[in-house]
Nucleic acid binder design. Structure first.
Lengths: 214, 214
DNA sequence: ATAATACTAGACTGTCTAGTTCCATATTGT
DNA sequence: ACAATATGGAACTAGACAGTCTAGTATTAT
């Protein structure tokens, strides 16, 4: 793993590593890992897809596992969800609708679905991978939305006991995903009908408000 | 696949296939598939684990895929969930609690978690596998519980519009699984604390009753 | 220019894999 | 007894894989 960002070391000479190649490798590997899984992807295929020699792959990433973790890491960082903070909350119902729409847009994105699948299948052999994904993905999302709910409680618009804030957050999200997430994960459908989803989310938010609105 | 149940063919002679060996192969394969996934399991390993020659494995199951599907099929058949029908419903809240407890007991069973994981990871390459699992597993569970709710509506104890019965069923189940299922699937924890789960399920059922009780 | 490093192209090792085939032996129905 | 089939054990094919190595070429800082 000391193969990357040696650029910063002073007194370094010779031809520098190409960031462009590193990125090409990462993109190629991500594409293959998400499509074919960890074991289904060979380093030769990564090199071929990246238009690079295998040696170069190993020069940037120590081994297959390192490369895999780097791919997941990059994807998780890319799909951030800290946007619940900036939602206009003048109308609470509308704000919640916006939030759950953003949430499902993220969760039902085909690439995110693929990440879920591949992380799940490799999480037995690599427990730290699951933490890496979970802590930087779902957990951050949950925290952001939980914080929004806490603010609404503080503003006197929701009635949620402090010790139930996390429960209520998960409840809102679980009600929002409905049956869609499993259908997508299992590949039984490859996209969600927009109007069907919108109707579903309205019910979920209304039920949530029934439980917690002041 | 014409390798099995040739027993029924009339005029058959010679040494019959051993059902015991077939079962040993199935058990060994199931164990390995659930622990190491489809690609992570070799037919040699299955033969070794079953205490049987590879030839015998191929004599009972045409190929690796057939064997895999047979394993999933057997597991799904074993973990049936048609028990919602027989629940004593004199006390509705208690009946719902019993049902969601049975549901989570099933869903959080370590072997069921392993089946979810392996089916998910192989569902891209084998879409019919996902259907096999989904139709005979989660879908049957959902139907059983949906039917129970329908009866309670008929008895005038719940108020759920007919077109929302499925929505309400999924809602109850999604609220019940909470964050536990993901933690288990990702291997972040390997069991659920009983009292924590019990408290969670009480809240879920109470919320459900708040929404739908007459 | 020179030294240091990155990169390509490919050969190569050692290991694993699925699937097939051969043959000797075991077990069964007729 | 006999024919038919199952089984064990092992060899074999044909190929994939991760990772290493070499040798030549390209690029860069000094």
């Amino acid at each position: 793993m000391p193969n990357r960002s040696d650029r910063s070391i002073l007194g370094r000479t010779g031809r520098p590593k190409s960031e462009a190649k590193a990125e090409a490798i990462l993109n190629a590997a991500t594409k293959l890992f998400l499509a074919k899984g960890f074991q289904g992807t060979s380093m030769d295929a990564v090199a071929r897809e990246a238009g690079v020699s295998k040696q170069t792959v190993y020069s940037h990433f120590a081994n297959k596992e390192t490369l895999f973790v780097a791919c997941i890491d990059a994807k998780v960082a890319h799909y951030g969800f800290d946007e619940a903070a900036g939602v206009d909350d003048s109308d609470l119902r509308q704000a919640l609708l916006t939030i759950v729409h953003r949430f499902t847009d993220l969760l039902f994105d085909s690439e995110v679905v693929a990440v879920y699948r591949v992380v799940l299948s490799e999480s037995t052999g690599q427990p730290q991978l699951a933490s890496l994904f979970f802590d930087n993905g779902p957990k951050r999302t949950k925290s952001a939305i939980c914080e929004f709910l806490r603010q609404q409680v503080a503003k006197g618009r929701l009635r949620i006991p402090k010790e139930r804030l996390l429960y209520a957050t998960v409840q809102l999200l679980n009600m929002s995903v409905g049956i869609f997430q499993w259908s997508l994960l299992f590949g039984l459908q490859d996209s969600v009908d927009d109007s069907e989803l919108a109707a579903h989310l309205e019910r979920a938010v209304d039920d949530f408000l029934t439980l917690y609105a002041v």
